[in-house]
Design a protein around this nucleic acid. Structure first.
Length: 182
DNA sequence: TAGAGGATTGAT
DNA sequence: TCAATCCTCTAC
C-alpha cells in the first residue's frame, strides 16, 4: 500500500516507435491477492494474471470489457500477487503524440481514466509482463514532492460486490489535480 | 467447446 | 442509463 502512495508524483514514460510520451501519476489504486476484486484473489493464478506473480517492477496490462486496456505495476515479491492500478496521469511529454493517437486537438481529459491513459501512451497488451526499467516503458522519479496532506485516500471504484473489501480506502489521488478521473 | 461476465467509457 | 465488444475463466 505504501507503494501505491509513493507512486503519486512519479512519471510514467513510454518510448515506442512513434516517440516518447510521459505523464505524472496522479491517481492509483492498490490491489492484493488477499481481497476480492483482485484478479489474483486467494492466490488464484491464471494465464491472464501471471504477471502479478512475477514480482515487483513488472507491468501487468490486461483488457477489460473487450474495449479498454488497463495498466498496472506489480509491487510485491515473486509469488505474492499485489499490484497498483494507474488510474490517471497528468500529460507531460509527447502530448501531441497522445492527441494524434486519439485524433483530436484538445488534450483535456485525455488521460483522466485507466482505459484512456493507456491509449494516450500507446500501451497495449503487448506490453504486459515487461520490466519497468526500460527501454520502452519505465517509471521515472523527477523529485516531484507530494506532501502527505496532498494525498487523498478513498474507497475504490467499480467494486460491484458486497462486503468490507469494497470500502477499503485503497484509492489514492493528488488533491486538487484536475486530471484525476471523476 | 460454449457461455457468461468484467478493475470502463462515451453516447443517449 | 445503457450498449459496445472481446478476452478470460468456468463448467459441461
Amino acid at each position: 500500500m505504501k507503494i501505491a502512495r509513493a507512486l503519486l508524483g512519479k512519471f510514467l514514460v513510454t518510448d515506442f516507435a512513434g516517440g516518447i510520451s510521459s505523464g505524472m501519476i496522479v491517481e492509483t489504486e492498490a490491489y492484493s491477492w488477499m481481497e476480492r476484486g483482485c484478479h489474483a484473489f486467494n492466490q488464484r493464478k491464471t494465464n491472464r494474471n501471471a504477471a502479478m506473480f512475477e514480482g515487483g517492477g513488472v507491468s501487468y496490462v490486461y483488457l477489460c470489457y473487450g474495449v479498454h486496456e488497463l495498466f498496472n505495476i506489480v509491487t510485491n515479491k515473486p509469488g505474492i500477487a499485489e499490484a497498483v492500478l494507474i488510474r490517471a496521469l497528468e500529460p507531460v511529454d509527447g502530448i501531441e503524440l497522445m492527441m494524434d493517437r486519439y485524433n483530436i486537438k484538445n488534450p483535456k481529459g485525455i488521460t483522466s481514466g485507466p482505459g484512456k491513459l493507456t491509449k494516450a501512451l500507446g500501451i497495449t497488451r503487448k506490453h504486459n509482463q515487461i520490466e519497468l526499467n526500460g527501454p520502452t516503458v519505465w517509471i521515472e522519479d523527477r523529485n516531484m514532492k507530494v506532501k502527505p496532506k496532498d494525498i487523498h485516500s478513498s474507497a475504490r471504484i467499480g467494486m460491484n460486490f458486497e462486503g468490507k473489501d469494497a470500502v477499503l480506502p485503497w484509492r489514492f489521488t493528488i488533491k486538487g489535480n484536475s486530471w484525476v478521473s471523476k
